[in-house]
Write a protein that binds this DNA or RNA. Structure first.
Lengths: 213, 213
DNA sequence: TCAAGGCGGAGCGAATCGCTCCGTACTCTG
DNA sequence: CAGAGTACGGAGCGATTCGCTCCGCCTTGA
């Protein structure tokens, strides 16, 4: 009922959303001023809610972990093992789960965060194990592969860059292509494929100029 | 024969290699000092070879485009359309083609660069068209999808972050998992898959909290 | 032994960072 | 309607880091 409270809550949401977006575009270099500007609020308002930049990022991190766990539980609730796993992966990816990678290591990990991360690992293990037992997931794909896939697809350098440059015309096309890519990767997780026929070629290809160790 | 020249050339190579690595880890925030330190040379030596930071990045960009085109030509030379395309993709990915995305838009694009990029697009089109005609590539995958895939896999936030933190123990495991992921994605490009059975779920999943437009 | 020049890094001005503080304007109550 | 209370935006602080220059050192070749 109190209009004040509502506005405050909405501002808090747009703030976190802006933080995630700017983080995706600018990486670890993301500045507080840029986040506030993106959210359309003054710097002072940001600092009234979060004492420091680190506190904002920690809150964002907790939110991300919460989303992971909720998505995993929602996936486990699905009677279809594959639909559950795919839904979890897709949900994490479109959430932008990989956006926080650049700040990993720059913020202090609270015990709340590590506890939630541990629970997230357990849930993912369960999802993977269930999919394996139902034979709807390649046997040579482990939980760590799913984690990496989510992290890898959790942000798109091209899309982020286009958004940063304000190229709205190319953006929708790129976002659509990205969605296709995710679908392809998800499809590649299913069993029944021949064991990687002819691909990939060895790493020694084209690496004469760079050392890729 | 002249030892001086040899050392200079080798230093130039390590410099570009270091620039690419630091760029992958630090993004657009990568500093000249960090690049020089990574290469094991002084800042003065870097600035003797490249007048400005932009010139270094432009050189790196040209090198990246050259690699793309060489890999594409090498792929076209392969009589097997699929092996040629897969080899091209894999070569570009392990090269770290996506590392330059953060600086795209921050450096001036020379006509040399745009010409090479244009030629690269043509070569990729040819590779894709050949694969389509031989029916070794999903019909619903276009050239732009391949581009995006290379950009998406061209750098791994997790691997880069681990390298930055010096976690050598986890690094090899993550790099190996990444390689598996690439193989899965390549496999997903092949035809004969059922048209994305049951996956992915709609984007409206889990997006109640964030607007993902 | 000595001239020459590639080398590393201290240090410059400028820009940007995270963060504080205060004048302004809006909201709610009596 | 008046006035107290409060949330807001943004100028500006010191500190840090940036790209880049300049100079003394030290290896190199004759």
């Amino acid at each position: 009922m109190t209009t004040r409270k509502d506005i405050a809550e909405r501002n808090d949401r747009t703030l976190l959303q802006a933080a995630r977006d700017v983080l995706a575009e600018d990486g670890a270099h993301a500045s507080v001023a840029a986040i506030a500007a993106r959210a359309g609020v003054g710097i002072g308002s940001l600092y009234r809610r979060y004492k420091t930049k680190e506190e904002l990022f920690q809150r964002l991190s907790v939110l991300s972990l919460d989303h992971w766990n909720e998505a995993a539980e929602q996936g486990l609730a699905d009677p279809d093992p594959w639909a559950g796993l795919a839904g979890f992966i897709y949900g994490c990816v479109v959430f932008g789960q990989g956006s926080l990678a650049p700040v990993a290591g720059t913020i202090e990990v609270t015990q709340e965060m590590s506890a939630k991360a541990r629970r997230g690992d357990e849930l993912l293990d369960e999802l993977v194990q269930r999919a394996h037992q139902a034979d709807v997931l390649r046997k040579d794909v482990a939980a760590v592969d799913i984690s990496l896939l989510i992290e890898q697809f959790g942000r798109s350098p091209v899309v982020d860059q286009l958004r940063k440059q304000g190229r709205g015309d190319l953006l929708t096309a790129a976002a659509e292509a990205r969605r296709r890519l995710i679908a392809i990767a998800l499809d590649g997780l299913r069993p029944g494929h021949s064991p990687l026929p002819g691909s990939p070629p060895g790493e020694e290809l084209f690496t004469g100029r760079w050392s890729n160790k």
